[in-house]
Measured scan of single mutants.
Amino acid sequence: MSGIALSRLAQERKAWRKDHPFGFVAVPTKNPDGTMNLMNWECAIPGKKGTPWEGGLFKLRMLFKDDYPSSPPKCKFEPPLFHPNVYPSGTVCLSILEEDKDWRPAITIKQILLGIQELLNEPNIQDPAQAEAYTIYCQNRVEYEKRVRAQAKKFAPS
């Protein structure tokens, strides 16, 4: 494992614990031996107030490669969400998460999670990743928002 990646992720964890947006979660997972795995984080993004996503808490896994922060983490909703920019596998399609697009090593975990929260309610229809959600979003916004509200209710924190 890269010392650069681990040191950056340790800084990220410290900064997150000191200050993070209300309702968001970002925690490194534990290895079988109980030690912390900084390369694999369990996160959760709350649906934004005043949107059909409100009330939901959407679980996301963030996986970092050894060359982080040169390369972005892979962000994957578990379980996958109904959304035009979420692949059926759950992987998020967002330009700041793509090395050859808008990724920059200075982007923080907090910025990534806030960017994904923004994307939930403002899909990028130029870059669809899920045919069904994309089609319904474009053709029947009322039905799309109904499905999103049902999903938010399903993923409401207990």
Score class of each variant (00 low, 15 high):
P123L: 02
N121A: 06
Y68D: 00
E122I: 07
Y68N: 01
E122W: 06
F64L: 11
F64S: 00
K110H: 08
E122R: 10
F24L: 04
L119P: 03
T35A: 06
R141W: 05
A10V: 11
A44T: 08
C75Q: 02
M36T: 01
G34V: 05
Y68K: 00
L119G: 02
R104K: 10
F24S: 00
K110V: 09
L97I: 15
F155Y: 11
E118K: 08
D33V: 03
N121P: 00
N121Y: 08
M36V: 05
R147L: 13
N121D: 14
I109S: 04
W103R: 00
K59E: 10
N121E: 11
E78V: 15
T29I: 09
C75G: 07
E122S: 07
I116K: 00
I107L: 13
L114I: 09
L63P: 00
L113Q: 05
H20R: 08
S2T: 10
N31D: 04
I116L: 15
D19G: 05
K101R: 13
E122V: 13
I45V: 15
L119A: 02
Q139H: 09
Q126H: 09
Q11R: 13
K76P: 02
W16I: 03
L119R: 02
A156V: 07
W53G: 00
S71P: 06
I136F: 11
G56F: 01
W16F: 08
P84L: 13
A152V: 04
A152T: 06
C93G: 03
G34C: 07
K59I: 09
F155C: 10
A106T: 13
C138F: 08
P157S: 11
Y144F: 04
E99Q: 14
A150W: 08
K76T: 13
M39K: 06
A131R: 04
T35Y: 02
Q126F: 08
H83Q: 04
G55R: 05
D100Y: 15
S95T: 08
Q130R: 08
D67V: 08
Q111S: 15
I107C: 15
G55E: 12
Q151L: 06
C93Y: 04
Q111P: 15
Q139L: 10
L60P: 02
C138S: 12
E122C: 12
K154Q: 12
P46S: 07
P28L: 07
A15D: 15
E98V: 05
S71T: 07
W41L: 04
K48T: 09
F82H: 07
A131L: 11
S7C: 09
R149Y: 07
Y68H: 08
F64V: 11
W41R: 01
T135S: 10
A129G: 04
M1T: 00
D100N: 13
A131S: 14
E54K: 03
A106L: 10
A15V: 06
E145Q: 09
N37K: 11
S95P: 03
V148D: 00
I109T: 06
I125A: 06
D66G: 10
Y87N: 03
R13G: 00
R17K: 12
E143V: 07
R104M: 04
S95F: 02
I96S: 14
F77T: 07
C93S: 00
L94P: 00
L113A: 11
